[in-house]
Design a protein around this nucleic acid. Structure first.
Length: 865
RNA sequence: GGGCACGUAGAUCAGCGGAAGAUCGCUGCUUUCGCAAAGCAGAGGUCGGGGGUUCAAAUCCCCCCGUGUCCA
């Protein structure tokens, strides 16, 4: 980055000079006479015991001071975004305030909610989890204070100079920092293909702000200026509060009294972890994360289980709910939504605590059994086993060691070894790929006016072609709905040609025709939408909002939409929930959702300024993911459900007709999927089902109401006939056995009873059973041969301990080219038929007779074996 | 999203290429005035589903389905 990037008029006006840090080598600007930048590790902390601000601040005071300062300087205060970044698929959590505006605002696709703006954004970072409680300054969740400006060529708000000036003014004039103690270190920021200069602001060893200027796009080796430049700043609120107190760690002023109290029971590190995790969980659960074994849910589980593990070491201490709720009440003073559904969150935590208990109990059993087995084998549990248990059973190594009589040592680098087990795994997914295969519309083509928002009922219209490319057509205005928001696209006709697909592409709506478009720019075309399909899509979409609201109502406000699909055949919604739905819950949901249909509530769709909509309805608006932009399209089912949504909807709930739940499944831990049909499709499916019921009841000859009984009867019949088959086989074999036992096939050879026979057409398993019956008495050797399906089978069974069935078999196998083997008790080989088989049988018989005469042959073996 | 582990009798699990098992529970009998308990006997299994390898698969391989867990 060019030095000139940092050479700001502000620095010169104020009399800053540029130095180079003797430690890190970075250039920095200062009014003082430092030879190094004022950030650790280049210099040690200097604010402990001597705060750098004029007075101590609480979190609340500092937040208000910051936001007020920027409001006083032309910024609009924006509400926080959820800590779960549902609007992005490259990350789970909001890790910086700028995440709120990526990718739509920062790419220029959608205008920011305000410009410039200021915000306090709680952010979650798991990268430093191990440092929490240890370093005295790390948190899983912290508030990133920020002021942002988005500059377009035609509208410059402010950039580097003003940003730096504002920052300096905040610290010096508002907070009373000695201007000579501040250093502005030159750095380069890079991320997501963009980069730009940044200034890291240090004071007394602390990095008190980062000022990032997103300015360039990397284009190979060259840098291209961005059409939209962005001021991205970050000020750690907890850090600022800490610096205002100058305490030993940041935890005292941030965690306050609760920290003092917990420290009476727990060491400082554990007390800090407990509160830190409780704070983060309060935000995460409020924002709709349900603890689970994958994705964002796992991080919530991790925090909770770490806390439970600590708490289990102090059984007399407070329980997890007490700590969680205490922390929640503290947060609710400034973020009321966090305290709003405490009972519901309590249930979520209870369910998770229960699962943890079960999981630990299971693990304990496994450990005990494994050790018994190992000891039985004269072996012991290895450190490697501890690793395996942690990975596959979730047993913390210290717990495993507690449980073992002879524990192995826990490797000092245990968690590094765990990480090593996972290092060859696929990396996390990236930004969403832009939709493939759509042509780029050249600049200058006017944006498509989307008419379906205002009027979802019109299905025929006139419009002008503004651009075409092969089968793709862009009109000046359209009623065709493009795939989006989980709703599939319309189909229909433009002129005589079928529209097979409709996609949104930037500001354009692309109609894809069945074949290349014969249109030219300026042509007037007649559009006709498949009204039946559109109506069905509208019914499914409105049904989905009804279902979503009902699920929240019945299951609790922890329920958030985690995905949805509205097609012409059926619709489905995935929601966060901590256990499968019970039949009673399902019934309640079914009743309620259809009641709402019958109530014929008005459904209003309208645009509203974002800040206003958020103020009125809160974050549950964003069920389909956060929608940036100044104005939101609101779909409001009167008195029931409000969501930001771009889909086509019925205007009254009765138009949905009816909703039939088709299927409920747990698609993953923490996510429940409900599939249903509405309107005409609900009727169709109901008719299909009824037809099936009627036909099947006719087939079974029972009334529909007795179908279950009929099926039970049928299954019982199947079962008993299978049993009868088995019984018949058994008695046939038993008969054969008793005939054999009476025949001259039985001979006594010394202490051994030898039975050799060649029954006809037996299966291998039948031979085995026959032999089993024949050799019930100990000291019996059985040799059997049979032919079936052009294969000869030779079977030897032995209950004489000294005589090995497999040995006898081996001696005869070659005679009929038999393949097989076995053990001393039983052996089988399959090979040729005819004379070869008879020869093998003869050899086996002879070998058995020979072995029986050997001195080692006994009828009774050692009884203890 | 990926790795690993696990799905065997009503329950908890063993077996991990050669003739499906243990414990508890269940049923019956013995014993008892009755209960508990004990003893004896018995019922209960398409070894999650589907392909494959093999003379032979609960066991090995592949694909599904389900559960648990760890990591991103």
């Amino acid at each position: 980055m060019d030095d000139a990037e940092y050479d700001l008029p502000f620095f010169h006006q104020q009399g800053f000079h540029r130095r180079t840090c003797v430690v890190c080598g970075h250039a920095f600007w200062t009014l003082g006479d430092h030879d190094r930048c004022q950030e650790a590790p280049c210099r040690e902390y200097g604010f402990i015991g001597s705060p750098i601000f004029a007075r101590p601040y609480s979190l609340h005071d500092m937040r208000e001071t910051f936001l007020g300062f920027f409001e006083g300087r032309g910024h609009t205060r924006i509400r926080r975004y959820p800590t779960v970044a549902r609007w992005r698929n490259d990350v789970f959590f909001t890790q910086a305030s700028i995440y709120d505006f990526q990718p739509w605002v920062t790419s220029g696709a959608i205008p920011p909610p305000a410009n410039p703006l200021t915000i306090s954004q709680p952010v979650v970072r798991f990268i430093d989890l191990e440092e929490v409680g240890r370093s005295g300054r790390h948190f899983t969740l912290f508030e990133m204070m920020a002021h942002h400006a988005f500059n377009r060529p035609d509208h410059e708000v402010y950039f580097k100079n003003r940003t730096t000036e504002l920052c300096h003014e905040l610290y010096v004039e508002q907070l009373g920092t000695d201007p000579r103690s501040l250093t502005y270190k030159e750095e380069v920021w890079e991320g997501g293909g963009n980069l730009g200069p940044s200034l890291s602001v240090g004071a007394a060893g602390l990095e008190v702000a980062t000022l990032v200027f997103m300015e360039y796009v990397r284009d190979g080796e060259r840098l291209k200026p961005m059409p939209l430049t962005v001021v991205d700043t970050g000020y750690g609120l907890e850090r600022m509060v800490w610096a205002s107190h100058g305490t030993k760690t940041a935890y005292e002023p941030v965690f306050g009294e609760q920290y003092e109290e917990l420290r009476r029971t727990f060491p400082p590190r554990e007390a800090a972890i407990l509160i830190d995790h409780a704070r983060a969980l309060n935000f995460l659960l409020t924002d709709g994360v349900v603890p689970s074994n994958s994705k964002e849910g796992y991080f919530a589980r991790l925090l909770l289980r770490r806390s439970l593990r600590i708490l289990s070491r102090a059984p007399e201490g407070p329980d997890v709910h007490a700590i969680f709720e205490r922390a929640g009440r503290e947060i609710a003073r400034d973020f009321p939504e966090v305290g709003a559904h405490r009972d519901d969150l309590r249930r979520v935590i209870e369910a998770e605590v229960e699962r943890y208990r079960e999981s630990i109990e299971r693990a304990r059993q496994t450990i005990r059994r494994a050790e018994e087995r190992a000891r039985g084998a004269g072996d012991h549990i290895t450190s490697d086993q501890l690793l395996e248990w942690y990975d596959s059973l979730g047993v913390p190594p210290d717990l495993a060691v507690e449980e073992l009589k002879e524990p192995p040592p826990i490797p000092p680098d245990f968690y590094a070894l765990v990480a090593a087990r996972h290092e060859n795994e696929a990396p996390a997914n990236d930004y969403a790929e832009p939709r493939q295969g759509l042509p780029d519309v050249p600049a200058g083509v006017p944006a498509t006016e989307a008419l379906y928002y205002a009027d979802p009922y019109t299905v025929t219209f006139e419009a002008h072609v503004v651009w075409t490319d092969g089968p793709f057509v862009v009109l000046d205005r359209t009623y065709f709905y493009p795939t989006g928001g989980g709703q599939v696209h319309d189909v229909g006709h433009l002129g005589d040609l079928a529209v097979v697909d409709v996609e949104r592409h930037g500001p354009y709506i692309l109609h894809r025709l069945e074949r290349p478009a014969p249109f030219h720019g300026g042509d007037r075309v007649h559009g006709r939408i498949d009204a039946v399909r559109r109506t069905q899509l509208m019914q499914h979409h409105t049904a989905t909002h009804l279902m979503n609201g009902t699920l929240r109502e019945v299951l609790g406000p922890h329920v958030w939409q985690a995905g949805a699909y509205k097609g012409p055949e059926f619709a489905r919604i995935d929601v966060t929930h901590f256990r499968p739905l019970s039949p009673e819950e399902l019934r309640t949901i079914n009743r309620r959702v259809n009641q709402l249909v019958r109530e014929d509530r008005p459904v209003k769709s309208y645009f509203e300024p974002r800040t206003e909509a958020e103020r009125r309805f809160g974050f549950t608006l964003y069920q389909g993911g956060a929608v940036p932009g100044k104005d939101l399209r609101i779909v409001e089912i009167q008195g029931f459900d409000v969501e930001a949504c771009g889909g086509t909807h019925c205007t009254h709930t009765s138009e949905v007709g009816a909703i039939d739940i088709l299927e409920v499944e747990r698609i993953q831990d923490g996510i429940v999927r409900v599939t249903y049909a509405a309107g005409e499709r609900a009727l169709e499916i109901r008719e299909q089902h009824e037809l099936i019921l009627r036909e099947e009841s006719k087939r079974l000859g029972v009334p529909v109401t007795d179908l279950a009984k009929g099926v039970d009867r049928l299954l019982a019949e199947v079962e008993s006939s299978r049993k009868a088959d088995r019984e018949r086989d058994r008695s046939r074999i038993e008969r054969a056995a008793s005939e054999l036992l009476k025949s001259d096939r039985v001979e006594r050879v010394g202490p051994i009873t030898l039975i050799a026979a060649q029954p006809e057409n037996y299966e291998r398993s039948e031979l085995m059973n026959l032999s089993r019956i024949l050799s019930q008495a100990p000291g019996t050797v059985v040799v059997l041969a049979t032919e079936r399906d052009d294969r000869g089978t030779l079977f030897v069974g032995s209950t004489a301990p000294g005589i090995s069935a497999v040995e006898i078999l081996k001696s005869a196998q070659a005679a009929f080219d038999g393949k097989g083997g076995g053990n001393p008790a039983s052996a089988t080989a399959v090979g040729d038929t005819g004379p070869a088989l008879r020869e093998a049988f003869r050899q086996a018989h002879a070998a058995a007779r020979h072995l029986a005469r050997e001195p080692g042959a006994t009828a009774q073996g050692p009884t203890d074996s």
